[in-house]
Each structure stands twice: as C-alpha cells, then as structure tokens.
C-alpha cells in the first residue's frame, strides 16, 4: 500500500459518506407531511407574478384554470442561485464577497467536471485533439479563477463577520470555522499549484480513482505530490463534515423556496379536486395531538379537535 492508495481510499470513503448522509438528510425533509400553506409573494410561477399577485385576485378563482409558469420560476431560481439576487438587494456589502465565494465554488464545480473529462481522456489514452485541448485550457482558467475568488470570498466573509457589529456577536466559533476550513482548502490548493500547475497530477489521480485503484480498468498508479495529497485529504475531511453543517443550505434552499414560499397551489383548480393533496390532508388529520396545554385535546386526532 502506498500513500496514494490511502488517499484514494479516503476519497472513496468520504465521497460515499457525504452522498449517503446528504441523501438521508434530504429524504428526511422530503418525507415531511404536507404542511399548511405558508407561501410568500411574489410567487414566480403565478400568472400574476409581475405585480406580486396570485390567482386569489380572480373572483371565484376555483372556477379558473390556474396555470403554473415554470419558465418564470426557473428564471427566478437561476437569478437567485447564480447572482444571489436577494442578498444583492438587501445587503450589498455582504453580497460582494458572497458572490465571489459562491461564484468561485460554482467555477470549481465546473473545473472538477473539466478535470473529470480530462481524466477520461487519460484513461482512453487520448492526448491531443480539439476537445482535449479545450478541456485542458478550460480546466486551467476555471481552476485558477475558481480557487482565487473562492479564497478571496471566504476570507472577505470571515473579515466581514468579525467586523460587522450587527452579526459578529451572534456568531458562534463554528461560523468562523466553516469559512476558515474552506479557506484552508483553497490555500492548500494554491500550494498544490506550485507542484501541479497544469492539474496533470489531479487528472491522473482522478483517472486512478475512476479505474477503481487500477483494479477495474488497468491504470498505473500515478504519483501525487505531498501538497496535492494534503489537499485531497482536506477535501475528504470536508466531505465528511459538510452534511452535518448549514453549508448544505443549497439543499435547504430548494425546500424553502419550492416547498414553502412558492407552494401556493390550491386543492381545487377549474372546479376539479387535486385528489393526491386531499389524500395527504386526510392523512395529516389522522395524526394525534401531542400537546399538553389545558386547551389542547391531547391524544385526539386533528380531525376531532
């Protein structure tokens, strides 16, 4: 067993762990009972969304056909995901660093895809051609910019947190730790660049991982500079830590937007019932009230309150 073997095992383990725990966490939210409606306007899928309106503006709305404008929902979703529009409008100082930080992470995710494709080329022994060249240079541009702006964004956010009197006294050590952890990974990536400026080792290592430690597909174990090994191990630790933190808010955001704030669909549209929803209502009303206050009918079903 070489160090590269250990690093490879750590990578497999942490990746699988992160995926499994994240799926469990998401499924816990996804399995939640249908809650009472709690939407917040504007809801972009509503036909009246341009002025923040809803189908409730129509007399006898239940007789009308309530269309869902998925296109406009997607546009709003992307504006929020890519540009963090709400933060831009409500807290500009925070937005500058937050945008760099999140933008950097997005670029690093695309960089990873470019490296992944590069590693496939390596496995297929393709060493030239337009696509090979394109992904090679794309990975350079994405990697260098991604690492830099993620680092600047993370350090900026730490500095803001430490100096903004409105939020620093509410920050627990873990709030600084999360950003510091990512900054440390970025620093480690920067140090790896001195030994692996073209991400060649990174591509070979990923190809080695894809090859199943060289067992599934014959692939020679690559060398990995110490700095790169440290970077991979730090990323592994991060993957083990990530699912337990609020940094998975990219997943939470799906639910807060789509399943709460934008969930305004009624149970009756064009005078037809949504049978599935009515089933869920019935299921909820069958649950038992556990509350203890004098007025709470403890032990009774919600249907009987």
């Amino acid at each position: 067993m070489t160090i590269v073997n250990y690093v490879a095992y750590a990578a497999y383990l942490s990746f699988v762990f992160c995926v499994v725990i994240t799926i469990l966490k998401v499924s816990k939210y996804a399995r939640a009972p249908m809650h009472l409606r709690w939407e917040l306007y504007p809801v972009p899928s509503e036909e009246e969304h341009e002025h923040g309106g809803s189908y409730l503006e129509r007399p006898e709305w239940w007789k009308t056909d309530i269309k869902e404008e998925k296109g406009s929902e997607l546009i709003d979703m992307f504006k929020e995901m890519i540009f963090i529009k709400r933060l831009y409008n409500s807290k500009r100082t925070q937005w500058y660093f937050s945008f760099l930080f999140h933008g950097g992470i997005y670029l690093l995710l695309i960089w990873f895809v470019a490296i992944f494709i590069g590693s496939l080329f390596e496995l297929l022994k393709i060493t030239s051609g337009i696509l090979f060249t394109a992904f090679f240079y794309a990975s350079l541009v994405l990697g260098y910019i991604g690492i830099s702006i993620t680092f600047i964004g993370a350090v900026g956010l730490i500095a803001l947190r430490a100096t903004d009197k409105k939020i620093n006294y509410l920050s627990a050590p873990v709030d600084y730790f999360n950003l510091s952890f990512i900054s440390l990974i970025m620093l480690s990536m920067i140090s790896s660049l001195f030994y692996d400026p073209y991400f060649n080792y990174a591509r070979s290592f990923l190809a080695y991982l894809i090859s199943g430690n060289g067992l599934l597909i014959g692939f020679k174990q690559p060398a990995l500079p110490v700095a790169s090994s440290i970077t991979v191990l730090l990323v592994c630790l991060f993957l083990l830590y990530l699912p337990f933190t609020k940094m998975t808010h990219f997943l939470g955001k799906y639910f807060t937007y789509h399943k709460v704030q934008w969930d305004s669909r009624p149970n009756m549209v064009a005078e037809r019932f949504d049978e599935k929803k009515l089933e869920l209502v019935k299921k909820n009303l069958d649950l038992t009230v556990p509350w203890d206050a004098p007025h709470a009918p403890k032990g009774k079903r919600w249907d009987e309150v």
Partner: peptide, 25 residues
C-alpha cells in the same frame, strides 16, 4: 417532530437549520 407539528415542522426546521447569519433580514 413531524407528528407533533405536521402543520409547520418542515418550514420551522428548515429555518432553524440553514440560517447563514448574513443579517440580510
């Protein structure tokens, strides 16, 4: 708990778990 608070537990838990404390609010 989803059993005890089916009415609002999902949005309540999401709001407890994911705040980044940016202060935008």
């Amino acid at each position: 708990s989803y059993e005890g608070n089916w009415t609002f537990a999902q949005q309540f838990k999401l709001s407890l778990d994911y705040c980044a404390k940016c202060g935008a609010c």
